[in-house]
Amino acid sequence: MEHLVEAKALTKHFGTFAAVRGIDVEVRRGEAFGFLGPNGAGKSSTMRMIACVSGRTGGELKVLGMDPERDGPRIRARIGVVPQLDNLDLELTVRQNLQIYGRYFGMSRQQCREKAVELLEFAQLSDRADQEVEPLSGGMKRRLTIARSLVNDPELLLLDEPTTGLDPQARHLLWDRLFRLKQDGVTLIITTHYMDEAEQLCDRLVVMDGGRIAAEGSPGELINRYSTKEVLELRFQPGAEKPDLERFAERVEVLPDRLLLYTQDGEHTLAKVHEHGVQPIQSLVRRSSLEDVFLRLTGRTLVD
């Protein structure tokens, strides 16, 4: 089986609201696949359908070659799910959380005990094993949730915004764990609205907006296709008249206090801008990032 997830014209409606409006997605074995998009883009709805906890309204969906509609429990037995919000069992200890979760998958008590020790190690929580869950830090709870999702040795791991709300140290530690999983051959599907996370983790991703797929490719491909190699940022006094520099760049974006010039060579463009007599109060040349692609595709308007 080449594709662990195959969706064709997949749709999801909640009453009259269309959360997912016909998407085609293929996730290959062993890759890390990302769903990017602003809030309300339909990422989580898609994840829930793949996790077999939400029925589809239309289209086709195959997970591990099976139909979630018919084989939900069998598919769930072979995948791991890290939900957006930790739903750990606060009435149990760290270790018990892992053990009882294994029991839900039908593992023997002995297997659960052994697996818990291994996963505590992986999540770097061995020294907290027999403590309550509640006092753990956000990063620790997140690692425990991820460890819990691995209890059944899943072939496919679904992570819904895995690092939202974590501090940088906790995020990097978590990324490190996810890399290790990928090296072990686990296929990852990640939703995120952090571009650095997507660039770090994902081999391939789709950008979703308004329930549709706006673009698909590897981070590098998307940057090539939807942005330029470099971006020149020119900062002006707020409210000052901004010069028209359209002819110096492939694309110019006008922000309240800045101009963004999308160009293949930022320094060269800056020199030409200076030649033209434009004097910004600050200038910065940087490489194009996925964030530029994202904002181009989904717009700068705030969606809540």
């Binding site: 429990p73 939900p83 839900y104």
Partner: peptide, 14 residues
């Protein structure tokens, strides 16, 4: 509040 059943439904349990 504990969202315990959501966690259980991510397993083969129904």
């Amino acid at each position: 509040y504990a969202k315990l059943y959501d966690a259980m439904l991510a397993t083969p349990m129904g």
